[in-house]
Every structure is written in C-alpha cells, then in structure tokens.
Design a protein around this nucleic acid. Structure first.
Lengths: 330, 330
DNA sequence: ATCGCAAATGTAACCGGTTACAGCAAGAGC
DNA sequence: GCTCTTGCTGTAACCGGTTACATTTGCGAT
C-alpha cells in the first residue's frame, strides 16, 4: 500500500488539507479538539509527511551536502565523523557524494541542488576550473583544503608548509640528515604544499631534498620503503605526507630487519587514530580533521542563519612526537 | 541571485517549459537546432535542475537512506565505506542519519520519507517495537544485524553464535583454559549472541564461563584489562566482543609488563583494518562489513528494479588467527 | 492550392506539501 | 436585533519540475 498523503488525512478527518497541515505543525490557530482529532486520524492512517514535498514549498531541506574524495583510509572517515556529529547535534541530515578520484565527481554536485541547504566540499586534488564551474551560485559552501577559486566562500586551509617544515626541524633536531620525503600525488594541494615546506627546511639546513612520489595509499609507502632498502647510502629518516604511507613503510622496514627509529626514523602526517597503535607509535602532525569537519558544519549553519562568512581559517597542525622518531624507547 | 528555474529558461528561449524539459532530458522529439538553442540558453543562465522538484514529480530520488548507530570506531565507518562504494558505482546518493545511541534516533527515519528510494538500517541495539513502529511501510528496507521484527524484509544476519564458539575452540586448541569474555552492551543483539556462543563452547569443554560487560568502546577494554590484572588466578585469554575493546586491553596488558600471547592471549571480533597493525597483530573474526554494506546496496537496487527479496542472508565470520593468540612469534 | 498525417510544441494537471487570503460563524457592544 | 471584531477553517496559488493530451506546424501527396 502506498503512503497516505495529507489529502487522505484531510478526507478521513473531514477537514481541509490546510487544517491538517496547521494541526500537525502546531500552528496555534486550530481548535484544540479538532487538532487532536486530526492527529489521531493521521496516526491511524500511519501518515508521515513527505519531506521532499515539504522542502520544495519551504525552500528548506535541513540537509547538508558533503563532497569528499573517497572514504578509503581513516582520514576522510574521520572528517565525515566530525561532520556527522555536529550535523546530527543540529538536526541536520547529510547527503553524501564522493568523487572517487575521478574529476567527473564534481558533476554530482548538480544532483545536490534542491536537496540541500548548504555544501561542504573537501577536494585537495580537484582541478580549480572544474571546481569553480560546478560551484553552485546560491548555496552556502564551505571549502576545506580546496584550490583557491574564490574569495567569497568560507574556507579551511591547513598550513601544510609550516607543518612540513616543523617536521623536518624535528627530524634534524634528533640528528637526522638524509631525510627523504614521500609525497602525495602531484596536483594535490596538500601534497604540493608539504613538499614545499619539506624542501624549504632541508635547504635551510644545507641538506639536499629528495622526494619520492606516492599517492597517499599504504601500498605506495610499501613500495617507497622497498626502494629505499636498495640504496647504498640509506636514508636515516622517511617523512611521509600521510600516515598510511608512513605505516606501510614502517612495516616494510621492520620486516627487513631494520629497527625504527634507531636505523631509520619514520614520520607521517594527519594523526589518524591508527597512528597511536602501531609499534613503534608513529610521529605525525595532528590535523584534527574531525574537529574541522564539525566546525565546517557550524559555519554552514551560521550562514544559513544569516551571518556572512568569507574568512579563510588557517589550521596549524601540531606535532605529535612519538616513538617512531625519538630514539631510546625509554 | 537566486537560481534560474525551468520557467526562466523557457522565457529566455521563447519556448514552453515542456520543451525545455524535453530538450534537456534528451526526449528525442525536439527539433535538433531548437534543442541546441535551449541548451545554450540554459547554460548561459547557469540553469541547474532542482533535484528536489524533479524527484517529487518522478517519485524517484536516486538516493538511499542509511541509518547507523554512529561513526565512532572503524566498524561502522567501514560499513559506510562499503555502502558508499557500491552506491556511487550505481549513481546513487546517500542520505545519512545516525542514531547516536539514543533510541530517539529512529524518529529521524521519518525525515527520510520522500527523500530516498530505499533504506539500509544497521541497528543491533535498537528496541524491536521501536524499530517496527518506525519502519516505513512502502520503502524497500534492508536490515543488517537488526532485531527480528519482520519476515518481509531482506536481511543480513551475522552468525555470531557460531563465530564466538569457533573463537573459543581456537583458544582452547592453543591450550587456554581460563578464557574470559568481554561482551558488548546488554540489549545489543550481536553482543548477546556472542555471549551465547562463548558460553556454549566453554560449557561444552567443561570450562566455566566468565563474562565481563563492556560497551564496544576502547575504554571498556582498558577497564576490563585492569580488572583482570588484579585477579589472584589470572585469566590466560581474553576474548573481546569487538576489536577496539581487545586493543584497549592489549595495550594495558603490555604496559603492565605482561607479554601477549605468552602470558595472556587476546582476541577480538570484526577484523577492523587496525587489527593487522597492532603489535602483536590481533586475532579476530573477520565479518567483512564493507562487503555486506555493498551487498546491501545491491539488494536495495534489485528491489527497486522490481525483484522481490525477503531472504535472510547469513554471514559466517572467518577466523583470522594472528600473533595475539598463537604463541611462538616465529 | 488542399488535404492528411506525423512530428514538434504548448497547455495544463499533477507530484505533496505550505500559506496568503477569503469566508464564515460566534460573541461583544450598542 | 444589528454591526463589528475576532478567530477558526477552507480555497486556491505556489514551490519546480514532468508528461498526458491538445494543438499547431511542416511536408509530401493529390
């Protein structure tokens, strides 16, 4: 049996649809016993309002669209967790759409029009023109770690340059010299900035930068570590641009009989939950992506409430120095 | 500026809204050059169809509602990842709604009516009457690990009893006798069934069951391990009802100077990605929740395509014996 | 030029709600 | 008893699309 509509309720209760709407939405100007009658009829029919229709006439959906690259690995899952926590606290639903690496993904943004009140986009490796072309005109949109496409949108930007620089400082301070960087994919904003910060710090210390290119997946950490094992003069530190690559490398080093951090230090980036649990615990830069996600929802909600916000909010990652870089497992 | 509507396009192109609709949706019966004209006008105006309105008249949303307990910990994140992968492969969007432990969460199901074509519900600790009361009548709904409320819905059920039994067998086979079970919260279906399987196997071997009650969170693993450390005759194996509790306990044991698995074996349940990475790697039961999530989407899609499906599909977890229970770190 | 028919286009109803405005009844004030 | 308010209820327009059906157009055949 199909769902009952407001007209079915009106007919069964012998009132007009306007009255049903008012009675069920608590609009005050309905006689008390009539209101109760309508409510009981609605309950008896198992009436549930059609949210789609409702939001069409209200021009309000109580939903936020979320666009992420993918859900692989803990990083974006953590982001989504933070978004979700804040959204449900505010009674908002989430409409999810992942780009899965392919640039076509932006087109799914079109399908969000009319279904959401605001948008949260996290897309570090999207083509700027593409993003700009698909960015909806009349929808509050919070950008997290996206290319610079507009000064009109509230943004979160991670200070990758300073953070990567700080990580090199940490490694140099603990006596490392041959520090290799395993980067994320070219074209990814976070990846490029981390390379820049790494290179600047290396150069400042008179060390020569060496960058291997990875793709943020565990396997590319595995591959990079195997490559390093073959070197005649082996690196004494590997700084990976995210935690999963660092962990992939860590496992390979240990399996090859090297001890971490004595033979080689390993550091990551992001501080995903997993980082604390590997042995030795992984040194990394804490980004706090779940908190950023939650805050993004708050900013979107504030804009919906009428505030204006075009601020670029900078996030400064914090170093988490753990056993994978600081020797003497004291 | 507000978004352009189909009427704006029609006016600007000097045609009727019907023609615009047909031209943009590729309905064939539009003169070729008129179609192009309409398309260029639409592009010039930055017209994007209002998906909400579209799905109201089509009675089709191309979205699936997903209801999970929460996104804490990797288990449900993995489930969502599987669901998401299959959904985007099929061009479906996901509308997310978490219950966050409180039973009120089911009410958010109401807000899904009219917004989604089908529903996937994973709710091992929901009150059956509540679930039944809020289960929408006319929406394909796939249940994963839910209480028995209906024979009319496609379901996935995890064979927790057999799996917990098998884990006890594994521990007994490796010489353990004082095997303690750290359960999930009372009222949670998975938790109760794992207790049952554990108890049955223990009794069969003439061993006395001992169950500590946890809540599936890491902290309750920590607490349980601390409690066990105080025992005079200490347990020689801890079988936790999920991986996070097992890992919490593992850390405490090691910090207290015990060696795992020599002094005490530790086993979990779920095989979350993290389980492979702790040291020693965690023995666990692989549920394959991401695959289940993906399959749930496929079943929902099949029902939407007209198939009928009221099958209860049983999932048999596979044991992953790793170093946390099998001695001799060979 | 006229007719017939197929193809293209327009008109209007519909999806399921909300709400401005109109209508109506009852009570207050004279 | 009559008018004026006040407050409840109903009618109908609207949100932005789709599409059945009616109408117009274009073209070939006569």
């Amino acid at each position: 049996m199909a769902h009952a509509t407001i007209r079915d309720v009106a007919r069964a209760a012998n009132v007009s649809i306007a009255t049903v709407s008012r009675a069920l939405n608590g609009h005050g100007n309905v006689r008390a016993n009539l209101r109760e009658h309508v409510q009981s009829v609605a309950a008896a029919l198992g009436y549930v309002p059609h949210t789609g229709a409702r939001s069409l006439s209200l021009a309000r959906t109580n939903a936020i669209g979320v666009m992420l690259p993918d859900l692989h690995g803990e990083f974006y899952s953590e982001a989504l967790r933070g978004i979700d926590a804040e959204a449900s606290a505010r009674g908002l639903q989430l409409l999810l759409s992942n780009m899965h690496g392919d640039q076509r993904g932006t087109e799914t943004l079109r399908f969000m029009r009319g279904r959401v009140d605001a948008l949260i986009i996290m897309a570090p490796d999207i083509d700027p023109e593409r993003l700009l072309a698909h960015l909806p005109a009349s929808l509050p949109t919070v950008l997290i770690s996206c290319p610079d496409v507009s000064a009109d949108h509230p943004q979160f930007r991670i200070d990758n340059v300073a953070a990567a620089d700080a990580m090199v400082e940490h490694l140099v301070a603990s006596g490392r010299r041959r520090i290799v960087h395993l980067s994320g994919p070219r074209g990814n904003r976070d990846a490029e900035e981390r390379i820049a910060g790494y290179s600047a710090a290396m150069t400042r210390h008179g060390l020569s930068p060496r960058v291997l290119t990875g793709d943020f997946e565990e396997e590319s950490g595995t591959a990079a570590a195997q490559a390093l094992l073959g070197d005649t003069e082996r690196a004494d530190a590997l700084f990976a641009a995210n935690d999963m690559m660092a962990i992939g490398a860590l496992v390979v080093f240990q399996r090859a009989g090297l001890s971490v951090p004595e033979d080689i230090a390993v550091a990551g980036f992001d501080d995903i939950p997993l980082a604390r649990f590997v042995t030795p615990a992984l040194t990394t830069m804490r980004v706090g992506i779940a908190e950023i996600g939650a805050e993004a929802v708050s900013r979107a909600a504030a804009i919906l409430a009428g505030e204006s916000d075009t601020e670029i909010r900078w996030v400064a990652p914090q170093i988490k120095a753990r056993a994978s870089t600081i020797g003497g497992a004291a």
